[in-house]
Amino acid sequence: MIRGVKFVSVPVRDQDRALEFWTETVGLRVLTDQPMGAQRWIELSFPGADTGLVLFTPEGHEDRIGSFMNTSLWCDDLDRTHAELAAKGVEFTRPPTKEPWGSYAIFADSEGNKFVLSARP
């Protein structure tokens, strides 16, 4: 039986820059950072969550770097998280926006990948 999502892979051009962004700026923790071919396998964890984030680009998928990620991240307080991340220099391409179905914002990581951020109801 499938029990959940283990990790989401984020395509990156510069693994060191992405690692610094996701750990120092966003606050994720390193679970694994080890050689894997010409790159490294870098697996990160979100505080209190089972799903992780992997900073790895499979060969032939470099064209995905800097694209819209079909991934939505959640936080407890969208306005507060937006303010905290923006103060750390995170680029938001859409500030917190309220819709009938909920509130969300969109931010870019160090590689230009765009993520939806929303508050969990």
Rank of each mutant, 00 (worst) to 15 (best):
P58N: 01
I65G: 11
E59S: 11
H61W: 12
T51P: 07
A49D: 14
P47E: 11
A49S: 13
P47C: 05
I65C: 08
F46S: 00
M36L: 14
G60R: 08
L53T: 02
D63S: 11
L44N: 02
D50H: 09
I65H: 09
D63E: 10
V54C: 14
P58I: 13
G48V: 15
Q34A: 15
D63W: 10
G52K: 02
E59M: 12
G66M: 03
D50F: 11
L55A: 01
P35C: 00
L53P: 07
P47R: 04
T57S: 03
E43H: 11
E62L: 09
F46K: 00
G66D: 02
E43V: 05
E62I: 00
D50V: 06
S45K: 10
T57V: 00
E62V: 00
E62D: 15
M36G: 07
L55V: 00
F56L: 10
S45L: 09
H61D: 14
Q39M: 11
F46T: 01
S67G: 13
L44K: 05
R64D: 06
W41G: 04
G66V: 02
R64F: 13
T57R: 03
W41V: 01
Q34E: 11
R40H: 12
M36R: 13
S67D: 08
S67F: 02
P47N: 06
A38W: 13
Q34Y: 07
I42S: 04
T51Y: 06
D63Q: 12
P35N: 02
V54A: 15
T57I: 01
G60T: 15
E43N: 12
G52S: 08
E62S: 07
E43D: 08
G66P: 04
G66K: 04
P58D: 06
T57E: 09
H61I: 04
G66T: 02
T51K: 09
I65T: 07
L44V: 00
H61P: 04
D50M: 10
A38E: 12
Q39V: 04
T51V: 12
P35S: 01
H61A: 13
V54P: 07
E43R: 14
D63A: 15
I65P: 12
P35R: 00
Q34S: 09
R40D: 05
S45E: 15
G48C: 05
A49E: 15
E59I: 03
Q34M: 13
G37Y: 14
T51C: 15
G52F: 09
T57C: 00
A38L: 05
E43K: 11
R40T: 02
I65L: 08
L55D: 11
V54K: 07
Q39K: 14
P35I: 00
I65R: 06
E62M: 06
Q39E: 08
G60H: 12
I42Y: 03
Q39R: 15
F46C: 02
E62G: 15
G60N: 13
L53Y: 11
S67T: 10
A38Q: 12
T51W: 10
G66A: 05
V54G: 08
V54L: 09
R64H: 10
G48Q: 10
T51D: 14
D50N: 07
M36V: 02
L55G: 03
P58T: 11
I65E: 06
F56E: 13
L44I: 00
F56P: 01
G37T: 03
